[in-house]
Amino acid sequence: MNHFRIAHKSSAFHKKQGGFSIVELLIAGVLGLLLLGGVLQLFLGSNQNYTMQDELATIQEDGRFALMFLGDQIEMAGWSDPTANEVRPAIDFLNSADGANNDTIALTYVRANDGVNNIDCNGNVVLGGIVTNQFSVNNNNELVCRGMGVGGTAQPLVADVESFQVLYGVETERVCPDGLVDRYMTRQEVNNAGLVNNVLAVRIALLLRSDNEILPENKAEQFQVLDQAFNFNDRSMRRLFQKTIPMPNSAFNILTNSDETIKCMSGF
C-alpha cells in the first residue's frame, strides 16, 4: 500500500514539472527583445552624447587656440626693434583681402636681423628682419599661416573653418588723432579711405564646425560673422568665436609725431 502511494505521488510530481507553453515562450521572447532594445537605445544615446561632447571640446579648443595665436600676432604687429632703425605699418594691405566666405590678413613687424628673433610663424628665418605673417583659409577649410621666411609654406593652425572674417578698427581723425578707434571697417573700406596707416585694432571672427554631422536631425541656424551672414540647415555643430585685439604699437606710432601732438594739445 505504501509503495503504491509513493508511486502515485511521484507520477503526480512529474506531471507538474511539464515544460513552458508556446504562449509563455513568446511572451518571454518579446519581453527579452524589449529589454534588449532599451539597452541598445541607451547605448546608442550615450555614444551619440559622447561624440557630441568630444566634437564640442575639439571646437572649443581650436577656437581658443586660434584666438590666442592671432591675438599674439596682432598685438606684436607694428613693432619695430630699436636696433632695426625701420618702422613698418602693422597691417600689410597688399597681402590682405576681403572675401565672400573668408578674409585674409597679413601682419608685419620688424625684428633685429640676428637669426633668432626674426622668425616667422612657420619657424623660418626672415632675411632683413621684416616679418610678415599672412593668415587665410585654404581649400581644405583650414586656417593657415604663411610666413615670408626662407622656404616658408602655409602651415595649418585649425581645421573645419566655416568662415574667417576680419574688420579693422581705424582712427579716422586726420588732424589731431587721439589714438582711439572711431570705426570698424573692411579692408576695402580702409583702403578706399586712405587710412591704411591708421589701423589701431583688429576684430576677428571664426566660425568653426564639427568634423562630422553629429546632430540627430537637421538644424536650421543663422550666424552673423562680423559683416557676413550665413545660413545653415544640416546636422553639423557650429560655434562662433570673436575677439577684438588692440594694436598698441600702431597707436604709439601714430602719436609719436611730437610736433603735431604739441600743436594739438596747445590748441594750435
Rank of each mutant, 00 (worst) to 15 (best):
N2T: 09
N2M: 13
F4M: 12
I6M: 10
I6C: 05
H8S: 13
K9V: 12
A12R: 11
F13N: 06
F13V: 15
F20W: 08
S21N: 13
I22C: 05
I22Y: 09
I22F: 09
E24P: 00
L25T: 10
L25N: 05
V30Y: 09
G32M: 13
L33S: 13
L34D: 07
G37R: 02
G38C: 10
L40M: 14
N47I: 00
Y50T: 12
M52N: 04
Q53F: 08
L56F: 04
A57F: 06
I59A: 01
I59C: 02
Q60G: 04
D62G: 02
D62P: 01
G63Q: 04
R64D: 07
R64A: 11
L70Q: 02
L70K: 00
D72K: 14
D72M: 12
Q73Y: 12
E75D: 08
M76A: 13
M76V: 02
A77S: 15
W79H: 14
D81S: 14
N85R: 12
N85K: 13
N85L: 12
V87H: 15
A90W: 04
I91A: 03
L94H: 11
D98W: 00
I105P: 00
L107P: 02
T108I: 05
V110K: 05
V116W: 04
V116R: 06
N118Q: 10
D120T: 04
C121V: 05
N122R: 04
V126I: 06
G129Y: 03
F135I: 01
S136W: 05
V137G: 00
V137K: 01
N138P: 03
L143M: 10
C145T: 07
R146P: 02
G147E: 03
G151E: 12
T153K: 06
T153M: 05
P156T: 07
V158T: 08
A159T: 11
E162G: 11
V166W: 01
L167K: 04
V170C: 04
R174F: 12
R174T: 15
P177C: 09
P177M: 08
G179R: 10
L180S: 13
T186N: 01
R187E: 12
R187K: 15
N192L: 14
N197M: 10
N197C: 04
L207H: 01
L208E: 01
D211V: 08
N212K: 15
E213Q: 15
P216Q: 06
E217D: 10
N218I: 01
Q222E: 13
Q224L: 09
V225M: 09
L226G: 03
F232Q: 02
I245E: 06
P246A: 05
S250P: 05
N253C: 03
L255C: 07
L255D: 05
N257G: 07
D259A: 13
M265W: 13
